[in-house]
Simulated assay, not measured.
Amino acid sequence: MALRIKSHWQNEDIERSLDEVGGALAFIAFRIATDKAITLHCERFVYRDDAQRMRVIQEYVIFLIQIADRLAHEMLDDDRRRELITAMARKAVDHVQDNSQDLMGPDDYGTPFIQRLNERSGEYAEFQLDDEGPSYSFLRHLGFEIQQLMGEQDENRWVIDQVMDKDGWDAYKRFSKAFRDLFE
């Protein structure tokens, strides 16, 4: 079944705050990230447990936050861009906390996510996003991080290729379309 992303406001005549747009982007990013984690499973890559699957989802969300930041740079001044990405990150933390708690029980899942987001933001800052999409290095970094999470046992050896060649591109395309739709 194909993932359906709602990326248009029900009442398009109402102007939305950057906080509302950031919340919508976080929800869309989490849905796309979850879909990509499911795709990996359907492609016969093996998760050790729910915690590992949730970490893969988080890596995709972090990647999509980086994409949102680059796309926002094209459209917004620095203060508005910061406001949007902060709102998106805060809402993403809520999604990570709620979903992780549902799967694995009570704990603080948000703080480690924020730490990884901050760390990855510095790493992704080295990579380019242009009109054609994320650079090879951008996608390779996502694939590398997911490969580190999945391990290199036989069934997961080629996960980096799946992420770089298919899933990362698809996540980017779906998310960038939704991003632009929300600002129409």
Score class of each variant (00 low, 15 high):
44 R>I: 04
6 K>F: 11
118 N>K: 07
135 S>N: 09
82 R>E: 09
17 S>A: 05
124 Y>H: 03
55 R>A: 02
65 I>L: 07
62 I>A: 03
118 N>Y: 05
79 D>E: 14
139 L>M: 09
78 D>K: 13
70 R>I: 02
80 R>C: 03
152 E>Q: 02
128 Q>L: 13
71 L>E: 13
76 L>P: 03
120 R>C: 14
81 R>A: 02
1 M>Y: 11
44 R>M: 02
102 D>V: 08
11 N>K: 07
86 T>R: 09
57 I>T: 11
27 F>I: 08
59 E>D: 10
124 Y>W: 02
154 D>S: 09
75 M>E: 14
163 V>K: 05
48 R>L: 15
36 K>H: 12
147 Q>H: 14
148 Q>K: 07
182 L>P: 01
112 P>L: 04
169 W>C: 12
76 L>T: 10
69 D>L: 01
13 D>L: 14
107 D>P: 00
118 N>G: 04
81 R>Y: 01
82 R>V: 10
31 R>N: 11
75 M>F: 06
77 D>Y: 05
118 N>F: 06
112 P>M: 03
174 R>A: 14
21 V>G: 07
45 F>L: 03
52 Q>D: 04
90 R>Q: 06
182 L>A: 05
147 Q>C: 09
8 H>T: 11
83 E>L: 12
184 E>D: 15
52 Q>L: 07
184 E>V: 12
125 A>F: 07
105 G>A: 10
118 N>L: 13
152 E>S: 04
23 G>I: 05
75 M>C: 09
112 P>W: 00
137 S>D: 13
27 F>M: 11
83 E>K: 13
34 T>G: 08
52 Q>H: 07
144 F>P: 02
38 I>W: 11
164 M>G: 06
36 K>Q: 14
48 R>N: 15
181 D>T: 12
103 L>N: 07
61 V>N: 02
89 A>M: 12
108 D>H: 01
99 N>E: 13
174 R>H: 13
43 E>R: 15
128 Q>P: 05
179 F>C: 03
111 T>P: 06
117 L>D: 00
177 K>L: 13
28 I>G: 08
112 P>H: 06
136 Y>P: 04
55 R>V: 00
123 E>C: 10
159 V>K: 04
173 K>S: 14
109 Y>N: 00
23 G>Y: 07
17 S>R: 06
49 D>L: 09
63 F>T: 04
84 L>Y: 03
115 Q>D: 00
91 K>G: 03
112 P>T: 01
136 Y>Q: 15
47 Y>G: 03
150 M>N: 01
11 N>H: 05
88 M>K: 07
106 P>F: 14
53 R>L: 07
16 R>L: 11
42 C>R: 15
133 G>H: 08
110 G>E: 01
64 L>T: 01
28 I>S: 05
44 R>F: 10
49 D>V: 12
111 T>D: 05
132 E>C: 07
23 G>H: 05
80 R>V: 05
42 C>P: 05
69 D>W: 04
184 E>M: 12
14 I>L: 14
34 T>E: 09
111 T>A: 02
